[in-house]
Amino acid sequence: MNGSKKYMNPYFAGFILGLLILASYFFTGDGLGASGAYKRAAAKLEGFVSPSYVENPESSAYKYFTDGQDPLKNRLVFMVLGAMVGGFISGSVANRLKIRVEHSPKITAKTRLIAAVIGGALFGMGASFARGCTSGAGLNGMATLATSGFVVVMAIFGMGYAAAYFFRKLWI
């Protein structure tokens, strides 16, 4: 990494991330989230393709249309847009902006991209089942001492470690 700044101390990063979660609950009554924006973007697309589908209470997108608002007019969508801006600012000040595929030298860029799509798809499905991802269900859940948060974190890391051996060639 030529000339890019060092990463922040992880314990300090965790501490300020914790303060941010606290601030989020104090101001908005809810925590952080990333997958919620995908749920709403998908609902928007489904409504665009088939209005009758999202009007059916049996569909999973139905609940995003019940308040009469655009499904994208939601705090979680604004949060993800903000996160992109924040990531860009951090990358700029740390001299890390560069368009590239990051992968282990033992695999090709193509393999990495295929794995990224599959991993993303699994995360999208899993977050739908768990009503949130690592942030929305895990981090928020632990911060609020919700049992669901601890259950989902144990499931994520448990499965991660159980499956790590089979996918080691992707990373080491």
Binding site: L32, A34, S35, Y38, V80, A83, M84, V85, G86, G87, F88, S90, G91, R96, L97, K98, A115, A116, V117, I118, G119, G120, A121, L122, F123, G124, M125, G126, A127, S128, F129, A130, R131, C133, T134, S135, A137, S148, V151, V152, V153, M154, A155, I156, F157, G158, M159, G160, A162, A163, A164, F167, L170, W171
Partner: peptide, 28 residues
């Protein structure tokens, strides 16, 4: 919650990101 967590764990070790972290990575 358990099924979702298990699927996400698999997604994490295959994809290397979670939704939040991927957004920060997209930005750079």
């Amino acid at each position: 919650t358990i099924v979702g967590g298990l699927i996400m764990g698999l997604g994490f070790v295959i994809g290397g990101f979670c939704p939040g972290t991927s957004i920060a990575a997209v930005a750079i």
